[in-house]
């Protein structure tokens, strides 16, 4: 039962460290968009929209993770959450704490090592449900719900990555 909390806390801390920078951006309104309240409100609205979309996708991913266990009354698929703890670690340790290393060619050997370990960890999120299905411990439907949950999580991270890097530019 503690596994969902562990996964949720880990990812929530990681997202909040990014959101804090993002939430600060509406205050620094400058240039033509600072003229009049309409510009300020427009940028703030875009920020809220981004946050709402990312939060919705992340919640959907967690919902599908829980649903894969609850629908079949079988909690073996929760093992896939172990990989969600592993996936942020290369980003935090070798990638400089940001998702910039994913689309960067510079940085040398450490960024390449971070990419290698991220690929190896992400493969586990696909492999664990497949092995459990092959061993007959979970149903085929639960396996595909796990795949959908992981896919939505990857899309959330990619959208978040794009949003943060757009802000940095």
């Amino acid at each position: 039962v503690s596994l969902p909390h562990l996964r949720f806390a880990q990812l929530l801390v990681w997202f909040c460290s990014r959101f804090r920078r993002r939430l600060g951006s509406p205050i620094r309104v400058s240039g033509w968009r600072g003229i009049g309240r309409l510009g300020f409100r427009f940028e703030f609205g875009v920020t809220i929209g981004w946050l709402a979309g990312l939060a919705f996708m992340f919640s959907t991913s967690i919902l599908l993770q829980i649903l894969a266990c609850a629908l079949y009354n079988n909690w073996w698929p929760m093992l896939a959450a172990l990989m969600y703890v592993l996936v942020p670690m290369p980003c935090l340790f070798f990638g400089g704490g940001s998702t910039q290393f994913l689309t960067s060619r510079d940085g040398g050997g450490w960024f390449n090592a971070a990419k290698f370990l991220t690929g190896a960890s992400a493969m586990g999120s696909i492999a664990i449900p497949a092995i459990l299905r092959h061993a007959g411990l979970i149903e085929t439907g639960a396996m595909f719900i796990e795949f959908t949950s992981f896919f939505i999580l990857v899309c959330t991270v990619m959208c978040f990555h794009r949003a943060t890097l757009d802000e940095d530019w």
Partner: peptide, 16 residues
């Protein structure tokens, strides 16, 4: 850019 990640995924697939 993408190659090191693909290499990691193939490595993980082999061990899994």
């Amino acid at each position: 850019i993408i190659g090191p990640g693909v290499a990691g995924a193939v490595f993980g697939a082999g061990w899994w």
